[in-house]
């Protein structure tokens, strides 16, 4: 029985016995090769659910719109970490959720009308192939997770450059930003009703077209996700000008691991690094 069929059977059961009133999953996109999110409310709609290596979206984002409604959701391991993040931050309620976890084989690079065999960058260094939270698991979880020593190779390469080289690199990257905020819209961790970038008084990020305003946006977006980013890498995928946002996110992820021994979304209970402190800790960085 393939993954899609297992998901359809479970979803149909949940809808028919009215455990939930909506199942959020994936269906085939109109181009015939990709996937797109599906909100199934009726048993006949459930038949359109699929799962394969094109199902890239992090659906956990949609739970923020269904806070008080009983919902079932299909999640990959990275998406399941997003659910833990939102539970930890009291944004969603566990008892309203039915989580269909998928043991993920990795998602391939897909575009409109085309798909490839090559795994997405985040999936190539993925160390979590089994969901960290679920009520029902489909697929075969691997016996053990791979130990990828080179997970931060590109971050280390960036750190090896001089300050001027890094400055030049990021200036070029940020200068291309069109501030469409797709990275924010797609991120399950970005749910503020009023983002700092839209505040008018004080005007933190000016509306003029200027690279240095872009820099404030990109820097603070990444920092707001420090210790919160669950590495689904959707921000980088949706960026229309291909800014390597994962280079920023993973730098912070690595630092948070070293400084606070913390990884976001692995469980819903451990307090986030910035929500707690230890009196005795010392940080050589800040003297």
């Amino acid at each position: 029985m393939d993954l899609g069929e297992q998901i359809r059977n479970k979803a149909k059961e949940l809808i028919e016995i009215e455990t939930v009133d909506c199942v959020i999953g994936y269906e085939r996109a109109t181009d015939g090769v990709g996937a797109r999110p599906l909100f199934a409310y009726k048993p006949e709609e459930v038949d359109r659910l699929i799962f394969d290596q094109t199902c890239t979206h992090n659906l956990a984002k949609y739970l923020l719109n269904r806070k008080d409604k009983a919902t079932a959701i299909v999640v990959k391991p990275c998406d399941s970490r997003a659910i833990n993040l939102l539970l930890n931050e009291s944004q969603i309620q566990r008892d309203k959720l039915f989580i269909i976890g998928v043991a993920c084989p990795g998602i391939t690079k897909t575009g409109l009308n085309n798909t490839s065999e090559e795994l997405q960058a985040a999936c190539q260094i993925c160390q979590q192939h089994t969901p960290v939270i679920y009520d029902f698991l489909v697929g075969e979880p691997p016996a053990s997770e791979p130990d990828i020593a080179e997970a931060y190779a590109d971050v280390a390469a960036m750190e090896g450059q001089s300050a001027e080289e890094r400055r030049a690199f990021w200036e070029e990257q940020f200068s291309r930003c069109i501030r469409c905020y797709a990275c924010r819209q797609v991120c399950p961790g970005c749910y503020c009703t009023e983002c700092f970038v839209e505040r008018l008084d004080p005007l933190w990020v000016g509306i003029r077209i200027a690279p240095e305003e872009n820099e404030v946006w990109n820097t603070i977006r990444a920092f707001h996700l420090a210790g919160r980013c669950i590495a689904c890498n959707e921000c980088e995928r949706v960026c229309p000008v291909n800014i390597p946002l994962s280079l920023l996110n993973r730098k912070l992820e690595e630092e948070v691991r070293e400084l606070f021994n913390f990884q976001a979304g692995m469980d819903a209970e451990t307090p986030a690094p910035f929500a707690t402190y230890k009196k005795e800790e010392v940080f050589p960085e800040i003297g």
Partner: peptide, 27 residues
């Protein structure tokens, strides 16, 4: 105590995006 955690992370991050860490001090 909270400030210390945030700023300890901010400093290497500024360094990473090309603002030398010597330009940012916490005392």
């Amino acid at each position: 105590y909270y400030a210390r955690r945030r700023l300890a992370l901010l400093r290497p991050f500024l360094e990473y995006i090309g603002i030398e860490k010597e330009r940012f001090r916490v005392e």
